[in-house]
Amino acid sequence: MSGPDSRGSEWGKGNGSQRPGARPGGQSPGPGGRFRADEAGLAAGQQGLAGRVSRNAFDTFLVGVSSLLVLFFVVLMGSMLAELFSRSFRQTPHMDEVLFALRLSLVTATLSSMLAMAVSIPVAYMLSRFRFPGRNLVDTLLDLPIVLSPIALGAMLLIFFNTPWGSALEGILGPVVFEAKGIVLAQFIVVVGLSVRLLKTTFESIDVEYENLARSLGHTRARVFVRVVLPMARKGLVAAFLLVWGRAMGEFGATITLAGATTMKTETIPVAIYLSLESVDISSALVFITILVCVSMGVLFSVRKLDASTL
């Protein structure tokens, strides 16, 4: 592995979008992203009826498909809410179980996403700045958890803990398989690829020029990282944490494989939904689903808001 001195040709010109004057860390949606039909309409007006009809047909197609998709989600949520309210009068969910699952999910998701961020920050920074042989291989390997089925990841972890190395690791960490620790580990493995990828994009959007300049002012690379790169990446860091945390909250496949589905022990919210459905406890399942939907929506809205704000 070689240092940044041997990096490609972009030491000065940078490879990122973040030049002075541009907003830091922002992938702001430009005004062009909005649906704009005025100019098109004007052109079509000059072309006569044929142009107008074909344009309208295409617009109708675009708007139609989008509406149907949105409608589908609205109906989905609506039916869930309707069911939730009608059932909660007849059958009360087990509140202690709900609270346990909520607390366990919050604690494990927070721990695993913090762990994932702690590991991803240096890894993503290295991938965004260093060019070394095998870099693409490393990059691809770290993307694997994003694509790979979580249950396969969980199974791989389970197999690993049956090997002597796994037992040795369990000796250090204490029991992991079928324990709450297993949940954290499973979530970590599933989300770490995502956090590396998000942070890599964030770091790549910061022009190397800032770092070169800070070094010319007498700051060492470590200081430059702390004083320039991290502050400039703060928006991306917060956004990445939120997304990763949301993903960890919803993790199911790897969790159930590694930590099992034991009521009041390794029962995170997704596991609880599974268990409720198994035992035909629809009202509990609905409560869990509602919580997850709210959390996910909350995360997405925060990330949107973050993007628009000047942090």
Binding site: R215, S216, G218, M232
Partner: peptide, 20 residues
Amino acid sequence: TLPEYRRVGYVPQSYALFPH
């Protein structure tokens, strides 16, 4: 010598003022 110990001041083309 590493860049941080060279005592060379630098004004890049983009100025690269720290936005934070």
